[in-house]
Design a binder for these strands. Sequence first.
RNA 1: GCCGAAGUGGUGGAAUUGGUAGACACGCUAGACUUAGGAUCUAGUACCGCGAGGUGUGGAGGUUCAAGUCCUCUCUUCGGUACCA
Length: 875
Amino acid sequence: MEERYQPEEVEPKWQAYWKEKKLFKVSEDTSKEKYYLLEMFPYPSGKIHIGHVRNYTIGDVVVRYKRMKGFNVLHPMGWDAFGMPAENAAIDNNTHPAAWTYDNISAMRAQLKRMGFSYDWDREIATCRPEYYKWEQWLFLKMLEKGMAYRKESYVNWCEKCQTVLANEQVEQDRCWRCSRTVQQKKLWQWFFKITDYAEDLLVHCDQLPGWPDKVTVMQKNWIGRSVGSQLTFKIHDRDENIEVFTTRPDTVFGATFMCLAPEHPLVETLCLGTSREEEVNAFVQKVSSQERSAAGIEKYDKEGVFTGAFCINPATLEKIPIYTANFVLMEYGTGAIMSVPAGDQRDFDFARKYNLDIRVVVQPENETLDPETMTQAYTGPGTMVNSGEFNGLDNTIAIDVMTDWLEKQGLGKKTISYRLRDWGISRQRYWGAPIPVIHCPDCGVVPVPEADLPIQLPEDANLLEKGGSPLPTLDFFARTTCPACGRKDARRDTDTMDTFVESSWYYLRYCSPRYDRGMFDPEAVKYWAPVDQYIGGVEHAVLHLLYSRYFMRVLNTLGMIDFKEPFSRLLTQGMVCKETTTCPEHGYLFPEETRKIESGKLVCVKCNNDVEVGRVIKMSKSKKNVVDPNELLEKYGADVTRLFSLFAAPPERDLEWNEDGVEGSNRFVNRVWRLVLDWLDKIETGNSKSDDNLEPYTGAASNLKSDPAKALYIKANQTIQKVTDDIDKSFHFNTAISAVMELVNDLYAVDTKTHDSELQAVVLFCLENILLLLAPIIPHFCEELFQRLGKKGSVLECPWPEYRTDSLKTDEVLVVVQVNGKLRSKFTIEADKNEAVIREIALSDEKIKKYIENKPLKKVIIIRKKQTLVNIVV
RNA sequence: GCCGAAGUGGUGGAAUUGGUAGACACGCUAGACUUAGGAUCUAGUACCGCGAGGUGUGGAGGUUCAAGUCCUCUCUUCGGUACCA
């Protein structure tokens, strides 16, 4: 008998067995309840890291558990294979993005297989394959036809390093989400998806996603950013034109003493055209356009503006007020124009003070009197209307509606809802992506590629440009084409590719019928499997992938292709796996171990001896150079111990600072179970496989591990089954599930293996079998092996999940905890059926308790008999 | 600034509805078995105190027979977001 668990022999053996028996291959089966579990598919960056291991282990445990519970479980895996790192790597290593990507996929697939994850590999997809993106192009054309996709020229986020446009969701704190470079605004013609059409629907349904963490729905709600207000019309003085403003405070309209336009506002140029102000205004607009509109930039630049020379009419006071253009007004939000109420808005107040503009108080707070001359800041709170004509005296919160109605009657206002969410810009000036299937014809304009011509294949014989830009516009054989509408020979293809988030917005539907060639997916397969019952991934996609996916399902729903709107019924956002990283100003992110050198008490970079920033604990990421490769763990301990350890470290939603100190403990536990089972296997008179039947007499029996180990163990086993089932099913708290099994194992170690008590042997066997069943989802190879050695036929994964007996969860003896004035003073055990009077009597006559209550009047005795039995004596 | 989450031993973390704080591990200490062990087993391990006992869940109050858990205020850390009118 081997002393230790040998993963290098056992794990490949069972992986081969699962493969041979096709245990993870699934198909639609209406006789069974379906369960679709999905982890966010990886980008094939080269190697899996510990974060992937944690993510996929969580999913795999649930999948294996659900299978044992009798569900027909879909658990696919694939590759989010388009994207920039492939291009960068190709330039660096003088290879092709496709070659690099497919090599990485092979390497990562092998690693995932080695982890023993239960994927149906027959459903594997890679988004860079034409069979996949053909349908994405098809959908693009459908959306174009329905007006859901459109092209416009606008200011967009441009990353100079990545040489491409980015969606708003892909800009983090004004930096590129990939390379962290500060983005610029650039005016370009771009394709957009009209996600704003669904702003309200996406928002409303945030509250109807009970299976999602609040954190994520709150982030989505904030991102969508609905604000209710009014759109008011200000007539321009001496012109037959109007300016529309959006405000959430129509009650303050009497206080609007000037107007501010965004520098990009079309009226800015025309208002001052040919006037003496023209030069100054243009200079200002020029200046602002070169300012960074970043958080840092905003700190740097004061609020400033220039007078356009024009005036407009305040619709409430009918006064002429000056029109300014100011750097703090955003063209993209609302209408790009604001009515400035300095008394009620801090920015307007600062601006008014700076340029000596009128301040008029229109909302007076209850306990003070604001004076425009002396006030030092704007007042934004509630109050009573003043200086507002017929509305004086009204509560301002009431005035909001009243005044909106009043303006509306004059045709000068209407209630509006503004959203922060903007349309999704999907054009990317990159090579490694799905080509946008349209043709630009000098005569016909934008012409969609005919469906029969799909897919528009990305040409593989392309050399990437040194500076990182896309080679597609330079490839004549690709870019030059014939207009499908008029036949003109010098039409050009659109040489932009789609944002890679487009691929990931619908891949989970493709898994339902991955080889289907008559559409994006087989409607029948999707009807059976979708939506995803449980989705697992990082919270970093809260307003990226998770929002885009919800949008895409609404598009498909509108197109009549699916009958649901929400892609993921339940969502688990697993915590990030973090690791310290050190930053050297010269050498960038450095892996801590290599860089740590302490010289005269200071941390210095090994390469340059410069002081380095003390390590920050941040998410593992290849670009931050703080990833831990799981291969070392796999080599030393095998897949099962690695799986066990990653689950035992913390509950899944919690962030985790990676630390391998505990892995020995997991290894120890696995080997403890190994020895336990094999030791007993030698001793127990086998043939006793119907152990369950022999255990009937134990139900509800009194028990104590020392006096009656058989009964005590039987109850403990039932409690363990209940605990593990609840932990996996209800909360995904695998760490406590594992600790429950550890407790049972510890109890079993207290039983003398030399016993000849056949009842006890039967209970031990019952415990051992159940331990293997309970651990099977977590450490599957290990459990298969021991299950087989116990003489069982077939796979442990095909066994039903153990059930516990509700009548065998409680012992007949209970522990009574005695408190005096709320402080624990004594404990004793008693038969569970004793009544309260008896318990009270024993508690009060307890020697230790007597000491505390002597000579003091007894006020109250409280007896609680719930999970615990507790007596609290109040004196 | 606004929104959200989290603060528990030396460490990771336990603790349905308020009811024995620290399960289960890591680490550490001692012992056993070993030629040896980084194998295994046994015992101990929140803090202060020789002890009886006292103190303890970021801090300060409060409700309660009883608070890690509920309420008020506050501090810290992390995440999201931000001239959003």
